[in-house]
Design a protein around this nucleic acid. Structure first.
Lengths: 216, 216
DNA sequence: GTCTGAGTTTACCAAATGGTAAAAAAGGCA
DNA sequence: TGCCTTTTTTACCATTTGGTAAACTCAGAC
């Protein structure tokens, strides 16, 4: 069989039974993990299958037994991480105090930047270069969520619960500031001597910044 | 002669007479321009000498007549652009109203993002991947300037001219927000329908954000 | 046990890519 | 014009890299 990897993949349009063997689950996870490491630190073109294979502890042809090719790995990685990456934004919504909701979102984004900097850099790399393998995701995944949350924010502002400002710009500035700490880590580390103290300062700073901006 | 490019380059430690012929000036400029275009949109490893050569309207060996290699082009590009990129920060200093000084800096950074998005993405690409070819520049170029301006900001805050906040965090958040519009252009364009209106909104938003943050 | 298919490895290949040698062409100047 | 230097092109090369073929190994069902 030339490409047996076709068969065991259930999550396509045809609802094939999900017969992922233990070995497949384990190795696919290993590959995803290695790919995240390599793609996030070198970008798509800078990453090589050999690097991913070494990082995963597998051979290159073995990698290609599980995935159709380099691009397929990258795309699947983006797909798999997109949901988790947007989870904090999903959680922000009516049902709580507006200011608390927004500041909680900001804090969660900061935690994501600290705990999952590779994910942040993966997306940053991709978007920086024009999002060539993520175009559809931006349109169908991010855009609707963005619009929905803009509406929520606009509503809060109309009710006088938050100071009036452009909701879209607000969201983008939250992303910019919070993800900066992960994406520009190399620069931050040069400028801020004590990483731990710097992180605490960063948290206070972004909290203060958005609190002041949104206090009516 | 194997590498005649050694001779006509004056800006090394030895202060050789700068005998750059018209042709050299013109072609080196063409190459720098092309390299900026290609490196900024594909990253270092994603860029190829062939792409740069095509973009510059020269042949690949001809490129290598003027520069020692791919890496030399990249490094020289970073060197050449660093100064201009930091110019707005140099201008921010005592001698004006503190709030105006900071907000002017913010506005200038926004203008840079709009007018020179390639420069922004070039640096972003480099830093994202750990600044492997820019380490010294961060230490010797950026760090001192950063510390100097932090001191200026701290002084203004101590005088009560600006609200107290961490000066370093302030500077980094200014960079994050302003450069975001250039670096994440592909994403911004998906989320914001009208680019022109979006740009105006962005300018108002960042002005308001930092004004509120810094108002004592 | 043994037989079948899933999983892995060895040995490759073709294209892309950074770089070089050397000849040819183009300037520039007496 | 003739002569020397600078610039450009043509024809290569070695390495890297994504990917494949086919042999081989191993796990589990019977």
């Amino acid at each position: 069989m030339t490409h047996p990897a076709r068969k065991p993949r259930p999550e396509e349009e045809t609802p094939q039974p999900k017969k992922l063997s233990r070995i497949q689950v384990r190795n696919r996870r290993k590959i995803m993990n290695a790919a995240l490491e390599v793609f996030s630190s070198h970008g798509y073109r800078g990453a090589t299958l050999d690097q991913i294979a070494t990082e995963a502890g597998l051979s290159k042809p073995n990698i290609l037994y599980y995935f159709e090719g380099k691009e397929a790995i990258h795309v699947e990685l983006l797909n798999a991480l997109m949901f988790n990456w947007l989870a904090p934004l999903h959680k922000m919504g009516p049902g709580g105090d507006p200011m608390t909701e927004v500041l909680t979102y900001v804090r969660r984004k900061m935690e994501m930047s600290r705990q999952y900097p590779r994910e942040s850099r993966l997306f940053a790399n991709e978007v920086l270069q024009g999002a060539p393998r993520m175009g559809p995701h931006l349109e169908t995944g991010l855009k609707p969520l963005f619009d929905e949350k803009c509406a929520v924010l606009a509503d809060w502002m109309a009710q006088g619960k938050l100071a009036k400002t452009d909701p879209g710009q607000l969201l983008m500035s939250i992303w910019a500031v919070t993800q900066h700490y992960a994406d520009f880590d190399a620069q931050v580390n040069v400028l801020i001597a004590d990483a731990d103290a710097g992180w605490k300062a960063a948290n206070s700073h972004v909290d203060l910044m958005f609190r002041k901006l949104l206090t009516p």
